[in-house]
Design a protein around this nucleic acid. Structure first.
Length: 465
RNA sequence: GGCGGGAUAGCCAAGUGGGAAGGCCGGGGUCUGCAAAACCUCUACGAGCGGGUUCGACUCCCGCUCCCGCCUCCA
C-alpha cells in the first residue's frame, strides 16, 4: 500500500517516495509572530499535523521543521508601537503560539527555527546569489533576486509571467527594481526600522521574507526536502521565490512534493476583521469550545477543499466526539468484563485498515471518518447483541489507539473531585431506598459542582458539564 | 483578462460508468422512578441548469449559471 499526495507542482496525484523513509524531510511554513494566530492559520497547522501523524502511522520517521518569522514589517511595526525590543515583542507571541499548538494537540516539530537566529545563513545564501549574478543591489541599497535568471520561475503557481495583470498593490515604491517581479532578498535599513538591523556586506538591513525559509530549510534539512507545505496563498510568490533562491544556490531540486491547504471561510464568508468573523484560537476557547472540538472541526474536511467553519459545525464536532467517547468507555468496560462469552470473538481489523487506506489517498479524512463511524456503529451493534467478548473489545481498543494516534481525539483525562464522588455515593444509597426526592436533590447538587450524573444499566456515570 | 478549485439532503461531506459512504440536526424505538445520556433505527426516485456519448451518467464530453481562490511578502 502506498501513500499518494496531490502535488501542487505537477497538479497530479503522485506516489510518495521520500529519499529516506526513516527520516522524511518535512518543512512547514510557520507563523509570523506579531499577533495571536487565528483559526485559519491553525487549519494549515492541523493539516500538517495530520500529514505527519499519518506518515508516522505508516511507518515513516518524520523530521519536521516549522519556522517562526520573527522579523518583518508587522513585527517591527508592533514592537515600535509598544516601544519594546523586537525580541521581547515576538517572545510573547511565540510562547502563545506554542500554547495554542498544545491546546490543539498538534505534535511538536523537531525544530522551530526563528528567522533572527539564521540571519548569518541568509546572508551567506545571498552572497552566493550575488556571486552568480542572479541578485543585484538596487539604488535603494536593497538586494533583489533577478527572476529573469531563473527559467522555472512561475512553474509552481502555473503562472505565465508575461500575462500577469498588474495589481494595485505593487504599483508604487518598487521603481528601483530592474523588473517588476524581482523580489527582495535583503531590505536596506531605514529609520522606520529603528534598532532592528543586521550588518551585511551590502550595508545594514534585514532579510527579506522568502530567504528565511530557504536558509532555514536547507540549514536544517539539507538541499532537498521531501515535502514542503503551506497555505495556498503561499504558493505565489513565497514558495516560488523559495524555489528560485534555493535551487540557484544549491543546484539541486529543492522540493520533491508541494502540498498546499485551502483557506477556511467562517459562516460562509471570508474571514476578516472587518466582517466581524475573525477568530483566534483564544477567542473560541473563551466562548467555551475545547481545543479538541476545534481540532475536530478543522481536521475533518479534506485539506484541499475550502473549509466552512461554523458554530453549527463546532456543535456537531462536540456531539460526534461525545459519541466516540461513549464508545471508548463502553469498549473499555467490556474489555474488563470476564463474564462475556469467549467463543464469539469479532474482528474489526478490516475497518481499521480501510481507515488508513483512505488516508493513504491524499489524506482523505472524510472517507477515513466514515470508516471509523461504521466501525463504531457495527461494534456497538455487536455489543448490544452480546456477541462481543472481552478479548474482542481489548483488540478493538488497540485498533482505536492506532486510529487515534492519527486523529488525536481522545478525551481529556479529568479527575473527579472527592466531593462529587461522595454525593454520588449518597445518591446511590437514596436510589437504593427509592427515595426519589433525595436522589433528585443530590443530582442537582452534583450538577452545581459541574458534573452531570446519568443512571445507566451499569450504574451511575459522571460527565463533566 | 489569465490560471486554478468547486456546486451531492436542513447543515457538513465521501466514493463511484451499473445498488447515492459517514457525521450533525430531526422523527421513531429500546433502556429508565423521573430526567438525561447511550444504543438501535428511519430520513436524497435524486446530484446547480441544458444538451450529448452510452444498454446504462451524480460520475465521461460540450455549453450555461453561480460561488471561491491566486495573479508580487496573507495559513
Amino acid at each position: 500500500m502506498s501513500v499518494r499526495f496531490f502535488d501542487t507542482y505537477t497538479r497530479q496525484l503522485e506516489t510518495f517516495t521520500p529519499q529516506d523513509p526513516a527520516a522524511v524531510k518535512l518543512y512547514t511554513c510557520g507563523p509570523t509572530v506579531y499577533n495571536f494566530a487565528h483559526i485559519g492559520n491553525f487549519r494549515a497547522y492541523i493539516f500538517e499535523d495530520l500529514l505527519q501523524r499519518h506518515l508516522e502511522a505508516r511507518g515513516y520517521g518524520v523530521l519536521r521543521v516549522m519556522n517562526l518569522t520573527d522579523v518583518d514589517d508587522k513585527t517591527i511595526r508592533g514592537c515600535r508601537q509598544l516601544g519594546v525590543r523586537l525580541a521581547e515583542f515576538t517572545k510573547k507571541f511565540k510562547d502563545a503560539f506554542f500554547d495554542d499548538l498544545a491546546t490543539l494537540r498538534i505534535k511538536r516539530a523537531q525544530h522551530f527555527p526563528a528567522a533572527t537566529d539564521y540571519v548569518e545563513q541568509m546572508i551567506e545564501m545571498i552572497r552566493v546569489l550575488m556571486d552568480k549574478g542572479v541578485a543585484y543591489q538596487a539604488e535603494d541599497k536593497s538586494l533583489y533576486f533577478r527572476i529573469g535568471k531563473f527559467a522555472d520561475y512561475g512553474k509552481l503557481a502555473h503562472l505565465n509571467l508575461e500575462e500577469l495583470r498588474p495589481s494595485g498593490r505593487i504599483q508604487s515604491d518598487e521603481y528601483e527594481k530592474e523588473s517588476i517581479g524581482d523580489f527582495a532578498l535583503w531590505k536596506a535599513w531605514d529609520e522606520n526600522d529603528g534598532d532592528v538591523r543586521w550588518d551585511s556586506p551590502w550595508g545594514p538591513g534585514r532579510p527579506g521574507w522568502h530567504i528565511e525559509c530557504s536558509a532555514m530549510a536547507t540549514a536544517l534539512l539539507g538541499p532537498e526536502l521531501d515535502i514542503h507545505c503551506g497555505g495556498v496563498d503561499n504558493i505565489f510568490p513565497h514558495h516560488e521565490a523559495e524555489i528560485a533562491q534555493s535551487e540557484c544556490v544549491t543546484g539541486r531540486k529543492f522540493v520533491r512534493t508541494w502540498l498546499h491547504c485551502a483557506h477556511l471561510m467562517v459562516e460562509g464568508e471570508k474571514m476578516s476583521k472587518s466582517a466581524g468573523n475573525f477568530y483566534t484560537l483564544r477567542d473560541l476557547i473563551e466562548k467555551g469550545w475545547s481545543g479538541r472540538e476545534i481540532r475536530y472541526a478543522l481536521l475533518t474536511v479534506n485539506y484541499r477543499l475550502p473549509l466552512n467553519f461554523t458554530f453549527d459545525g463546532l456543535a456537531g464536532a462536540r456531539s460526534a466526539l461525545g459519541r466516540i467517547d461513549e464508545w471508548v468507555v463502553r469498549l473499555t468496560e467490556r474489555s474488563k468484563d470476564a463474564s462475556t462469552p469467549v467463543a464469539d470473538a469479532v474482528d474489526f481489523s478490516a475497518h481499521t485498515e480501510r481507515f488508513f487506506t483512505a488516508l493513504d489517498d491524499d489524506l482523505n479524512i472524510s472517507g477515513a471518518m466514515g470508516q471509523l463511524f461504521d466501525l463504531i456503529r457495527e461494534s456497538n451493534r455487536a455489543m448490544d447483541a452480546g456477541k462481543f467478548n472481552a478479548t474482542s473489545a481489548a483488540m478493538l481498543l488497540v485498533q482505536w489507539e492506532r486510529i487515534n494516534s492519527v486523529l488525536g481525539f481522545e478525551r481529556d483525562a479529568v479527575a473527579i473531585p472527592a466531593e462529587v464522588l461522595m454525593l454520588v455515593e449518597q445518591r446511590q444509597a437514596a436510589r437504593a431506598a427509592k427515595n426519589w426526592a433525595e436522589s433528585d436533590r443530590l443530582r442537582d447538587a452534583i450538577a452545581e459542582l459541574g458534573w452531570i450524573v446519568k443512571d445507566t444499566k451499569d450504574g451511575a456515570k459522571l460527565t463533566a458539564r
